[in-house]
Computed example of a mutant assay.
Amino acid sequence: MSYNIRIADLPLTERPRERLLSLGAKSLSDAELLAILLATGQGKGKLSAVGLGQYILSELSKYKREPLDVLRDISPQELMAIHGIGPAKATTILAAIELGKRSFQLRPMEKMVIDNPVAAAAALSHDLMWQNQERFAIVLLNVKSQFLATKVITIGTATETLVHPREIFREVIKQGATKLIIGHNHPSGNVEPSQEDIDLTEQLLQGATFLNIPILDHLILGNGNHQSLRQITDLWLRYPQGE
Rank of each mutant, 00 (worst) to 15 (best):
195 Q>N: 13
229 L>I: 05
168 I>N: 01
142 N>E: 09
155 I>A: 03
32 E>Y: 02
27 S>F: 10
170 R>Q: 04
228 S>A: 10
187 P>Q: 02
19 R>K: 15
215 I>R: 04
117 P>H: 05
34 L>A: 07
88 A>G: 07
1 M>C: 04
229 L>G: 07
43 G>R: 04
127 D>A: 15
196 E>M: 15
64 K>M: 03
169 F>I: 02
235 L>I: 06
227 Q>D: 03
139 V>N: 04
200 L>V: 15
242 G>D: 08
93 I>M: 02
91 T>G: 01
162 L>E: 13
241 Q>F: 01
71 L>K: 07
184 H>W: 07
162 L>F: 12
8 A>F: 02
223 N>H: 13
236 W>I: 06
124 L>D: 04
27 S>R: 07
186 H>M: 06
195 Q>Y: 06
196 E>A: 15
23 L>K: 12
154 T>A: 10
22 S>H: 12
88 A>I: 06
150 T>D: 02
5 I>A: 15
85 I>D: 05
119 A>P: 00
73 D>T: 10
98 E>L: 04
140 L>S: 09
2 S>H: 12
158 A>Y: 04
129 M>I: 08
73 D>H: 10
137 A>N: 00
32 E>A: 07
66 E>H: 15
59 E>L: 08
85 I>W: 14
121 A>L: 03
82 I>H: 05
31 A>Q: 12
44 K>I: 09
201 T>V: 10
233 T>P: 08
218 H>P: 00
160 E>V: 11
173 I>K: 15
82 I>A: 06
140 L>C: 09
99 L>Q: 01
49 A>Q: 09
155 I>M: 02
116 N>Y: 06
15 R>Q: 15
133 Q>E: 13
28 L>T: 06
207 G>W: 13
236 W>Y: 12
40 T>E: 14
56 I>Y: 14
44 K>M: 01
141 L>M: 13
211 L>T: 04
60 L>D: 03
